[in-house]
Design a binder for these strands. Structure first.
Lengths: 328, 328
DNA sequence: TTTATCTATGGAAACGGTTTCATGATTTCG
DNA sequence: CGAAATCATGAAACCGTTTCCATAGATAAA
């Protein structure tokens, strides 16, 4: 493996000059530039990025945190972020927290050890107070997730609205018995706000909730199936269910079909995110502008890194869209 | 940011000894070890990974190439690889080739610049001859994809079997007019072998194929919809269609429903991969042991890196499983 | 014409670790 | 008891760049 020294020797110049050519520094005559280029070509030289990182104290790498990459919401996000970053010379390290607090903290050490220039959190497992100290080691920002205490740039949707829009839709369809079904993340405002929106819509309509209809721990299709069975077992059953993701909604629907229930007449279902599967099966859902969110976030992050901007709260809020299909 | 020097000074020892403690080298007395630990604690010291990378000439990072992370086949793969790697102290760089030859080559430079210790390709866009030269810079291996010329470890399924099993199933269901629908990757043996398997099954059954029934460029649900419309427009229509992915199959089915076709009576559809969506909608499909594949591949790669094994062909072949549902 | 500024280059320090080598102290073994 | 092996530590070299500083010639300004 050729080093810059080898190139310098072959070109009959100093390392410094070679470095200048590589980094497009002015003050190198065209003649020397040509000499260096030829030498690099001949030796098939490529600068060693570890050395570069050490000297420049930057890695051109950005970490993206997601709970699980198989969740289509997050994989879409990562797809867009990855492409955007790659186009600008940054690479992406994927950190899957697996909904685990420990795992999240483990990965945070990445920033501390200077393995990345910054990180984007799409979901938070720990209290903000556990994450905040890491801000000393480099820029952190939020995308999708948001938090009052976090003094960081945030690209998000107001999930109160999300919960409200969906529930409001069900109410307008004539439902008064509406179940609520979500994940299980205590530290996340996405979860709690959405629930707040749900309750807000109910209260406005003067509807009383049934505590039994608050179903948690639902992330996947299988969870949806389980949720359906919980609903089916109830004495006082809801006529509609608000879910936190299209996958869960799809699982509920699938199991409902197995039990010969008619959707939406026996049970109306509304999903969240507008994943491809929602269109496929005809699920009413609340669309989140994932790509837009992802791109704005990555743009912000690269901006912050390149201009060494101080970390401060800067909120970019995007909007939901209700997509009405045949499940409601 | 504290350096090893600061720790050494505070502990009243040399950098060497501190380094030994960090790297769990024997020959350090418990007393000094304690001194070092305390100093590290007090200074909140973390070794700088760029420096470490430079000196040790390794990055503890592995690049994984996928066409697009939103394809569930690949996101499952990446999920497993990411977790497996992370458990063993490696991190994952995600490289999305976007089905582009250029993009693939661009990312290959990662290995050259020593940004990663090795790379796993799950799909190949370029001819192997374009990829091979990069083997000089570090270990490369294949997972899912395979190639005759590639003298590298390969975890794969024999796609001839895959194509055969699926087509055979359709034939057994009484079909003789079977369309074939796939992506568009010329460099990939996954694609060509699967087609070979399809033709093999037909030939064995003495069935003549119709060239018009060879449909390409199909990756997504939307592509599936388009494919359906192409089929619907035909004068001589197939009664069954073999697809290269569950997403495409789902798209075909969805559009068939829109046109009031009955599946499987008007058109039988078989998917590939056994994604969650297949179970959801009742799609017959050919399961690939994705998780197993991913894990074996990552295990291999880490093994190769840690034991500096020479790159050689080593094939690990896994098996398909036909999952019969109601679309056939 | 002298002085200040700009251009072009190289030597050496710096980035922050790990590894090699040297050395002395301690233990083991014949 | 002396030689050999093992343990414990530190100084210095090294990994491959970029950057700071010095120098010198060329050009511009006074």
């Amino acid at each position: 493996m050729a080093t810059i020294q080898d190139v310098a020797k072959l070109a009959g110049l100093s390392r410094t000059t070679v470095s200048r050519v590589i980094n497009r520094h002015p003050y190198v005559t065209d003649e020397k530039k040509r000499l260096v280029m030829n030498a690099m070509e001949e030796l098939n030289y490529v600068p060693n990025s570890s050395a570069r990182r050490l000297r420049k104290q930057q890695t051109e790498t950005i970490a993206v945190y997601v709970p699980r990459i198989t969740n289509p919401f997050f994989s879409q996000m990562v797809e867009v972020m990855g492409n955007y970053a790659s186009d600008r010379g940054y690479q992406l390290i994927l950190c899957q927290t697996s909904y685990s607090r420990n795992q999240e903290i483990n990965y945070l050490e990445l920033l501390k050890t200077k393995q990345v220039d910054g990180l984007i959190l799409t979901s938070i497992e720990n209290e903000w107070s556990s994450i905040e100290p890491y801000m000393n080691y480099g820029p952190i920002m939020l995308c999708n997730e948001y938090n009052d205490q976090a003094q960081v740039p945030t690209v998000y949707l107001d999930q109160i609205e999300g919960g409200y829009i969906g529930t409001r839709h069900l109410i307008e369809q004539g439902h008064t018995q509406i179940a609520y079904c979500s994940g299980n993340n205590h530290a996340s405002r996405v979860a709690s706000d959405r629930y707040t929106g749900y309750k807000k819509a109910l209260e406005e309509a003067g509807i009383v909730t049934n505590e039994d209809w608050f179903l948690t721990n639902a992330y996947s299709i299988d969870d949806g199936k389980r949720v359906f069975n919980e609903i089916a077992k109830m004495n006082d059953r809801p006529t509609a269910v608000f879910t936190g993701s299209d996958e869960v909604a799809a699982g509920i629907w699938k199991e409902a079909l197995n039990h010969k229930w008619d959707v939406p007449n026996d049970l109306a279902i509304i999903g969240f995110d507008d994943q491809p599967v929602a269109d496929l099966i005809g699920l009413t859902t609340i669309r989140q502008p994932i790509k837009n969110m992802a791109q704005q976030a990555m743009k912000q992050m690269i901006d912050i890194i390149q201009h060494k901007l101080p970390s401060e709260k800067k909120e970019i809020k995007l909007e939901f869209e209700l997509i009405k299909r045949r499940s409601t």
